[in-house]
Nucleic acid binder design. Structure first.
Length: 458
DNA sequence: TCTGGGGTCCTAGGACCC
DNA sequence: TCTGGGGTCCTAGGACCC
C-alpha cells in the first residue's frame, strides 16, 4: 500500500486548524423556529415558483423525500404524510443567518461566511480553542443553538477539506453528538475509509464517476493517491483536494470580495409568448442587478440578456435566445442599462416561443474608480475645454444623483406587497398586472423583518 | 399542467502582438 | 524540401459549490 501521503499529516497537523459550522436543514429549521406546533414534524421548503424541494427537516428526510425533486412529483406523498410545505422565504432566512454569523463572530476572531448556512473559523490564531478542540466545538454548538434556536453541526480538521469531511461525519453519525474533530490518525483513517468519495467537498457527479472507473471509491483511496497523478487526470482543483486530505492546506480563509459577475433571472409562473411581457421582466432584472452592482460600488462593461423555453418540454424544441451589449464606458446606471437591454431583446427576440425563464448577467465588472475612460465619449472627460467639461460633469453627476436617490428611496420605503420597489423604471411595468410573476403559494410571514408580520403571543 | 437561482475557478484555443 | 517562438488577453465551456 502506498503510504507516502500520511507523512504530510504529521508535519502539518499542529500548524493549522479549521472549523466548519453548518446549520442543520437550515431553511426548514428557520420555518420551525416560529411554529412550535411543527416540532418533530416533517417540513419541506420549496425553490422559487414552488418548483423543487430545496430543504427538508430531519423528519422529512426520514420519510425519504429527496433533495431537489420537483414538487409536483411528491405533492401527493406530502399530503398523505402530513408534511408541512413552505415556499422559500429568503427575507426570513437571511435575517436568521445573520444572527448565526454574528454569534460565531463573538466566539472566534476569524470567521469566513461561506454560504447562507455555513461558516469556516480559523482556529490556529485562537489559542483558547486550540487547547481542547472537542470542548470548543461543543461550546460553539451550544451557544449558537442557545442564541438563535438553530441546530448546527461542527467539524474540525487541519484543512478546510478536512473540516468539511468532519462536518459530514458529525451530521451522519449520531454518536458524535454533532461535533467531530479529526485529530487522531486512526480516527481520520477510519472516517476516510467509510466515506464515499462522492460525498467529498470538490467531488461532484462527474468526478465521482471517473474516480470510480479508476477504482477509487472511498475518500481514503483518494487520499493515498499520488497528487501529481490526480492533477494529470482532473486538474489542479482536485489535486488540491487530495493535498488537503493529507493535511497540506491549500485553501485559506477568504475575505469578502466584490462579485465578478451578477446574475438576476427567474422562471415565470406561466409561459410568456408576448414580447412586451418579456421586455418588462428583463427590465426588472436589469434594475435588480444594477442595484446590486451599485451596492458594491462597481460598474459593468457589458450585459447579457437571455430568455428560454423549458428544457423539459417533450413537444417543443429547446430554444435559448441571448445577446450582449458592450458599454463604451462601463456603467451602473439602471436607465442606461435598461435601454441597452431593450435594444438587445429587440434583436434576439423570436416569435412563437413559449418562454419559461428570462434574465440578465452583468459582466466585466470593476470598481467605479478604476474605469477606463473612452477618449471620445461625452460626459466623462477631464481634459476638454472648460465649458464642455462643465456640461459633461453636470450630466454625469446628475445621472449618479438620480440613481443614488432611487436607491435611497427604495432602501427607506422597501417594497409593497407585490414586491414592487417604491421607485422603479416605467419599462419594468406594474407587477400587480403581471400574471407571470413568481408564485409562492405557501409563504410564511416575515416574522423578524416586517413590523406587520411579527409573531403574536395570545 | 407542474423541473430554482446565483455564484466560482480552471482550461483550452483563438486572436493578436512583436 | 524547409514557413518561429513566446507572450498576453479574451472567451466559451466544463466542472464544482450552496
Amino acid at each position: 500500500m502506498d503510504t507516502h501521503a500520511w507523512i504530510y499529516l504529521f508535519f502539518y497537523a499542529e500548524s493549522a486548524m479549521y472549523a466548519l459550522i453548518d446549520c442543520n436543514s437550515f431553511y426548514a429549521n428557520c420555518e420551525k423556529l416560529f411554529r412550535p406546533d411543527l416540532k418533530d414534524k416533517p417540513v419541506v421548503v420549496l425553490s422559487n415558483n414552488d418548483g423543487c424541494v430545496v430543504a427538508r427537516s430531519s423528519e422529512a428526510k426520514l420519510l425519504g423525500i429527496k433533495m431537489g425533486v420537483p414538487y409536483f412529483q411528491v405533492k401527493d406523498f406530502c399530503d398523505q404524510n402530513n408534511v408541512t410545505v413552505f415556499s422559500s422565504n429568503y427575507t426570513l432566512y437571511a435575517d436568521i443567518s445573520q444572527r448565526v454569523m454574528m454569534t460565531l463572530e463573538t466566539l472566534c476572531p476569524t470567521v469566513e461566511v461561506y454560504s447562507i448556512d455555513e461558516a469556516f473559523l480559523y482556529l490556529a490564531d485562537y489559542p483558547v480553542a486550540m487547547q481542547d478542540l472537542s470542548a470548543y466545538g461543543h461550546k460553539l454548538k451550544a451557544i449558537v443553538e442557545m442564541h438563535t434556536g438553530i441546530p448546527v453541526s461542527v467539524g474540525i480538521g487541519t484543512t478546510k477539506t478536512m473540516a468539511k469531511l468532519a462536518n459530514h461525519a458529525a451530521k451522519k453519525y449520531p454518536a458524535t453528538k454533532g461535533v467531530c474533530v479529526l485529530e487522531n490518525i486512526r480516527w481520520i483513517r477510519r472516517i476516510m475509509q467509510i466515506t464515499d468519495v462522492g460525498e467529498l467537498w470538490g467531488v461532484g457527479r462527474r468526478y465521482k464517476l471517473r474516480l470510480n472507473e479508476m477504482g477509487i471509491h472511498t475518500v481514503y483511496q483518494l487520499a493515498i493517491c499520488e497528487p501529481g497523478k490526480i492533477r494529470q487526470h482532473f486538474g489542479v482543483v482536485l489535486e488540491r483536494t487530495c493535498l488537503e486530505l493529507n493535511g497540506q492546506s491549500c485553501l485559506g480563509i477568504e475575505s469578502i470580495a466584490p462579485k465578478k459577475q451578477i446574475i438576476s433571472s427567474r422562471s415565470f409562473s406561466e409561459r410568456i409568448t408576448d414580447q412586451q411581457a418579456l421586455s418588462e421582466s428583463i427590465c426588472a432584472h436589469v434594475a435588480k442587478a444594477a442595484s446590486k452592482l451599485r451596492k458594491q460600488d462597481s460598474v459593468c462593461a457589458y450585459i447579457t440578456v437571455f430568455a428560454k423555453n423549458s428544457p423539459f418540454s417533450k413537444n417543443e424544441p429547446y430554444v435559448l435566445i441571448s445577446g450582449d451589449y458592450h458599454f463604451i464606458t462601463p456603467t451602473a446606471d439602471s436607465r442606461v442599462m435598461v435601454t441597452a437591454a431593450r435594444q438587445v431583446l429587440k434583436v434576439i427576440y423570436k416569435e412563437e416561443v413559449r418562454y419559461a425563464k428570462a434574465g440578465v448577467m452583468l459582466l466585466g465588472i470593476c470598481q467605479h474608480d478604476e474605469v477606463q475612460l473612452d477618449l471620445f465619449a461625452e460626459g466623462q472627460s477631464n481634459q476638454n475645454d472648460s465649458g464642455q467639461e462643465e456640461r459633461a460633469k453636470k450630466s454625469t453627476n446628475k445621472r449618479v444623483e438620480v440613481t443614488a436617490i432611487m436607491d435611497e428611496l427604495n432602501q427607506k420605503y422597501g417594497q409593497n406587497s407585490n414586491q414592487q420597489a417604491a421607485v422603479f423604471i416605467a419599462s419594468e411595468g406594474i407587477k400587480a398586472n403581471q400574471s407571470w410573476q413568481m408564485s409562492r403559494n405557501m409563504l410564511s410571514p416575515c416574522y423578524t423583518t416586517n413590523i406587520n408580520q411579527l409573531p403574536k403571543v395570545h
